[in-house]
Structure formats: C-alpha cells, structure tokens
Amino acid sequence: MLELRLTQAGLLKKVLESIKDLVTDANFDCSATGFSLQAMDSSHVALVALLLRSDGFEHYRCDHNISMGMNLGNMAKMLRCASDDDTVTIKADDGSDTVTFMFESPSQDKISDYEMKLMDIDSEHLGIPEAEYQAIVRMSASEFARICKDLGTIGDTVIISVTKEGVQFSTKGDIGTANIICRKNTAVDKKEEATVIEMAEPVSLTFASRYLIAFTKATPLAGQVTISMSYDMPIVVEYKMETMGYMRFYLAPKIEE
C-alpha cells in the first residue's frame, strides 16, 4: 500500500513538465527516503535524478519499497487536470497495475480521481558516485535559462568555463560566435540573483546546447541553479526544491576526437 499526500499539486506538475520531454517512460521508486526517479534520455547522453523527500509530504505511507513504471507524458496529462493549489494524493495498492491521483480543491468542494495504467519498464539504474567537483557555480535559474536559450539559437554546443572571476558561456555557429560572462556577484538586491563561484581549479567543458535548454524546463522549481563541473565528469545542473528535495540533470560532455 502506497499513499502520498502533497498539499501543492503545483510542485508535482512543475516536476513533470520539466522532465517529460527528456524522458518518455520511467520508474518512480518509493521508499522510506522518499519518492524518487532516475532515468536516462533515449540517447543515453543525459540522466535525470529526482528526489522528493518523504518528510516533505503532508502524509507519506509506503509499506515497502515499490517501483512504479509510468509514461511521463501521460502522468503530466493527468496532473495538468489539477489546480496548482489542489492537494494531490498518489495511491497504489500492492500488486496493482494502476496508480490513482486524487485531487482535492482547497475548499474540499471538488474531489477528482484519475487512475493511470502502470507499465513494466526495464530500466538500467546507474550508481552515481559522490564526487568533489572542481568548480561549482550558483546563479539565477532564470538567467541560466536565458543564456542557454540565447546561445542555442547561435550554436549547437556551449563551452562552459569557470574561473575564480566568473563563469563564461561561449558558442560558435554558422552565423557567428557569442560569449557571455557572468561575474561572481553577491551584492544583489534579491538573493536568487547572486552568482557564487566555488572553485578548486578552472574547468572548461563543452556540452550540447539542446540538452542544457531541456534542463532549464525545471526553472520554475527554484530561484537558483547549481552547476557543478569537473574534468572527465558529466556536468550536474541542480534545482533544489525548498524542503522537498532536488531535481538533478547530468550531462556527458563532448570531447575532441
């Protein structure tokens, strides 16, 4: 028996909207730790890791570890039927091949339930080692989204270079080149506009623009994004959800052949 109650359906809607275009089908794993997902995109270049901590839910009952295979597009369709301020309850009986999403309006005068078919997904689970990254950048999530979108219109790849002074995003395409430097800056009006650099040594890596753009669909989840890089490691683009957990995107770099 599984029963998870979350007061803000809007959060779950944003989570689904941010990954449904990158990953088609995925297993949601439910354990005492929380409601989590790990999945690769179809070309095995990017990986999504989501954790919604059990203590972030209003009610969390998970009698034993359970893995539920879902089509994320279909799940997103069902969640779109909820209002952002609805309470959502995710329910599944042991051995059932369906999951139920129940939405309750804040005044309790409208209650809907949507039953969705589960699917068997043969997915590979990867071990992600705890790593010390050579460079970590925290910056405005919406600024990062803007940069990825802008550079994506010029070139297919983005070089991200971190130095003590700041982070540089560069691209090159048929029509020309572009460079954006964001200097470290903590003297800002709003905390989320700060650019903070933690760096052991400078790092410069090349990534496919379209994946970075896809990750920025998670921008509504957080004011800041954390970008972690090391040589010969996938970049981590992380959106932390206050009190609930995180959405992490891993992307393998491109290398000179």
């Binding site: 690769m40 270049v45 990986l47 071990g127 080692p129 010969d232 052949e257």
Partner: peptide, 14 residues
C-alpha cells in the same frame, strides 16, 4: 570535431 560521450561511460550499472 567534438564527439558526444555517453552517461554510461561515467556511471556504472548497479
């Protein structure tokens, strides 16, 4: 030419 690497070449299956 930049060659795209795969996630599976960094993280191993569990």
């Amino acid at each position: 030419v930049n060659q795209q690497r795969h996630i599976t070449s960094f993280f191993s299956k569990t």
